[in-house]
């Protein structure tokens, strides 16, 4: 059974970077796939990778993550609009998926779709 845990924007909005990462990693280490409303900032993504590496053990092999932006337009006006929306309601555009490497083998993303490939446990056990 796969558990998908949703974290709404309001639940992590006021947390510090390390607070956000702790909340996410605690859930991922319980073998849950976490769906966060809003896109993590790039420094938060880097900090998440750093903290994940610090936590790698025989049983916790890391994470797979994927951030989806709602706006991919690099035009000045689009950037300004997105900035204004972020200022008013917070950066809740897009979402972030984080899953444990023990369950998610790969997250494949292209501009129009996201595919989660899970680890084939039956085949692994047979070996």
């Amino acid at each position: 059974m796969l558990t998908l845990q949703f974290i709404p924007y309001k639940e992590i909005n006021n947390l510090t970077t390390s607070g956000k990462i702790k909340k996410i990693l605690d859930l991922v280490k319980e073998n849950k796939i976490v769906l966060v409303e809003g896109k993590l900032r790039s420094n938060e993504e880097a900090a998440l990778i750093e903290r994940t590496m610090e936590n790698v053990t025989k049983s916790f092999k890391g994470i797979e993550l994927c951030t989806i932006k709602a706006e991919e337009d690099y035009g000045l006006i689009s950037k300004f609009k997105a900035g204004m929306v972020s200022l008013l309601v917070g950066n809740r555009q897009g979402f972030t998926i984080i899953g444990p490497a023990a369950i998610i083998k790969e997250i494949r993303k292209d501009p129009t779709k996201v595919q989660l490939f899970t680890v084939d446990k039956i085949r692994k056990r047979r070996r």
Binding site: T52, M53, V56, K61, G62, I63, A101
Partner: peptide, 8 residues
């Protein structure tokens, strides 16, 4: 190389 998972 940067990675998000490392499995011995």
């Amino acid at each position: 190389g940067i990675a998000t998972r490392i499995d011995y």
